[in-house]
Simulated assay, not measured.
Amino acid sequence: MTIRIAIAGARGRMGTAAVKALTEFEDMKVVAALDYKGEGLFVHGESLTDDANGIPVYTNFDLLANETKPDILLELTTPDTVYENMHRAITYGIRPVVGTSGLSIKQIEEITKFANDNQVGGIIAPNFSIGAVLMMKFAAMASRYLGDVEIIESHHDQKIDAPSGTATKTVDMIKEYRKSHIQGHPDEKEHLPGARGASIDGIRLHSVRLPGLLAHQEVLLGSTGELLTIRHDSFDRSCFMPGIVMAIRNVMERNELIYGLEHIIE
């Protein structure tokens, strides 16, 4: 069986890398690109041309679904379009595999219920890197014993949401192990607003945005007389491709939507 894949965001850096990676697998075929422009044109790398040997571009999801009949929508766009694209995909029985961060907790809950009610498999993965997911799992396990935690996540300066989906997902995973409490001195004061970062369940999150970075995160776990640092660095977008392939194959066997790649990593 060949898995038919439509990609939203196929001309972006992640999308371009995904197209290249997926064409290497005999059981997968990229059949369409969903974009905001270029109807009738074809994707070749990061460019749109009239060369029909490329991937056909659609600006209308209904037309894409009816003409190309994909099994999977690989969603790699931006937070302002991902929810609507997921909803439309599920309506057609197309399984969403989502690497776009920025969805709110409420949106994740709503789209999960919608997918499960329609028995359509899917996955929302804040990070497709296997190493990053292991970093999150290890940090969550360690927080049972070292419960004072701060997270520093660093990304390129074109990332538009902060904190990252990886950082907030890390907190969600840690909350399953760590007893909730407020960290630091009870009379702590910020002389500059934001100096201590954001706070979720008492865990401090700090976001760095600089050119030259890709995706990096370190989790600092402190206790009396010691510090454990768990860090992951992504240096090239190729590191996300094995996770994307794993997710695509996995959701073909599912009839519910899951949040986080850790659910399919043994």
Score class of each variant (00 low, 15 high):
residue 109 E to T: 15
residue 87 H to D: 14
residue 136 M to Q: 12
residue 177 Y to I: 07
residue 176 E to W: 02
residue 240 F to P: 00
residue 17 A to I: 02
residue 134 L to C: 09
residue 75 E to L: 11
residue 95 R to Y: 13
residue 93 G to K: 08
residue 132 A to S: 13
residue 154 S to T: 04
residue 189 K to A: 03
residue 123 I to K: 04
residue 74 L to D: 00
residue 265 I to R: 05
residue 263 H to E: 12
residue 160 I to V: 13
residue 250 N to R: 12
residue 127 N to S: 12
residue 42 F to C: 07
residue 169 K to R: 14
residue 236 D to S: 08
residue 240 F to N: 00
residue 216 H to L: 02
residue 180 S to F: 13
residue 106 K to W: 15
residue 186 P to E: 00
residue 51 D to G: 03
residue 6 A to G: 11
residue 51 D to T: 02
residue 256 E to K: 13
residue 32 A to Y: 15
residue 228 L to F: 09
residue 36 Y to E: 06
residue 158 Q to M: 10
residue 28 M to I: 08
residue 157 D to C: 00
residue 31 V to R: 13
residue 243 G to K: 03
residue 199 S to N: 11
residue 163 P to L: 06
residue 237 R to Y: 11
residue 72 I to S: 05
residue 262 E to P: 07
residue 211 P to S: 05
residue 211 P to A: 01
residue 68 T to K: 14
residue 152 I to M: 02
residue 16 T to V: 03
residue 215 A to T: 00
residue 231 R to K: 08
residue 107 Q to E: 15
residue 245 V to G: 12
residue 118 N to P: 08
residue 89 A to P: 09
residue 61 F to P: 12
residue 48 L to H: 08
residue 87 H to Y: 15
residue 148 D to P: 09
residue 50 D to W: 04
residue 264 I to E: 06
residue 66 N to K: 11
residue 26 E to C: 10
residue 170 T to A: 11
residue 217 Q to S: 05
residue 167 A to Y: 07
residue 257 L to G: 10
residue 263 H to L: 07
residue 43 V to S: 07
residue 64 L to P: 04
residue 74 L to V: 01
residue 3 I to C: 07
residue 208 V to P: 01
residue 28 M to H: 00
residue 229 T to N: 07
residue 244 I to S: 04
residue 127 N to P: 02
residue 3 I to A: 06
residue 238 S to G: 10
residue 16 T to S: 05
residue 176 E to V: 10
residue 156 H to R: 06
residue 170 T to N: 04
residue 164 S to N: 06
residue 22 L to H: 09
residue 146 L to D: 01
residue 98 V to T: 14
residue 175 K to V: 09
residue 256 E to F: 14
residue 182 I to G: 00
residue 147 G to P: 14
